[in-house]
Simulated scan of single mutants.
Amino acid sequence: MAGIGDGVERRRGRNETEEERADRMWGELIQEVRVAQTGVQILFGFLLTVVFTPRYPGLDDTSQVIYIVTVVLGACATGALIGPVSLHRLVSGRRVKPQAVRWASRLTFVGLLLLLATMTAALLLILRVATHDDFVPWLVAGVVLWYVLCWFALPLWTRHRYTTR
C-alpha cells in the first residue's frame, strides 16, 4: 500500500460529474441556509413587534430611524436567505442546477451580509435604549468585529491556508 512520502501522488478532491457536484453543493447550501434563515426569521419577527409596544412612541427620532432601518435590513436579509428556496423551486427539473447553485450561493452570501447589518443595527438600537452611554458604539463595533472574524475572516483564512499551494 502506498504511503505518504513514498513517491506516489495522492489524488485530492472528488471524482464527481458537474451534476453530482451541483447536487452535493445544493444539499450543503440548503443546510447552511436553514441555520441562517432561522436566526434572521426570529430576529425579524421580534423586530416587527417592537413598533406595537408602549415604549416605541417614546423613543427619540434617532432610535426610531435606527429601528426602521433595522426592520428594512431584516426584511431584505429574509428575502435573500429565502431566495435560494424559491430559485430552486422555479428552476427544478430544467437542467440548470450548477447555475442555480451559483446564484443561490450568491443570494446566501448577500443574505449573510444583510443579516450582519441587521444584527448590528438591532444591537445598536437595543444598547442605545438600554444604556444611553457613550461606550455603546464601541461595544457594537467590537461585536461586529467578532461577527466579521467568525463569519468571514476565519473562513477566508482557512480557504487561503488550506487551498492555496
Score class of each variant (00 low, 15 high):
A2L: 07
G3V: 15
G5R: 12
R10I: 12
R12F: 09
E19V: 11
E20T: 08
D23R: 15
D23F: 10
W26T: 00
W26D: 02
I30E: 02
V33W: 05
V35A: 14
Q37S: 09
T38V: 15
G39N: 07
V40R: 01
V40E: 11
G45A: 10
L48P: 01
L48T: 10
V50F: 05
V50Q: 12
F52E: 04
F52L: 15
T53W: 10
P57Y: 01
P57N: 02
D61R: 14
S63A: 12
A75H: 12
C76R: 07
T78D: 11
A80P: 10
L81W: 01
L81V: 01
G83D: 01
P84D: 00
P84L: 05
L87D: 00
L87V: 09
V91N: 06
R94T: 10
R94C: 04
V96S: 05
R102N: 05
A104F: 02
F109W: 11
F109E: 08
F109P: 03
G111T: 08
L114M: 10
L116Y: 08
A117S: 11
T118P: 01
T120W: 02
I126P: 03
V129H: 00
A130C: 04
H132R: 12
D134N: 10
P137Q: 09
P137Y: 00
W138T: 09
W138D: 09
V140Q: 07
G142D: 09
L145A: 14
W146P: 04
L149R: 13
F152Y: 08
W157S: 04
W157P: 00
W157N: 06
R159F: 07
R159I: 10
Y162D: 04
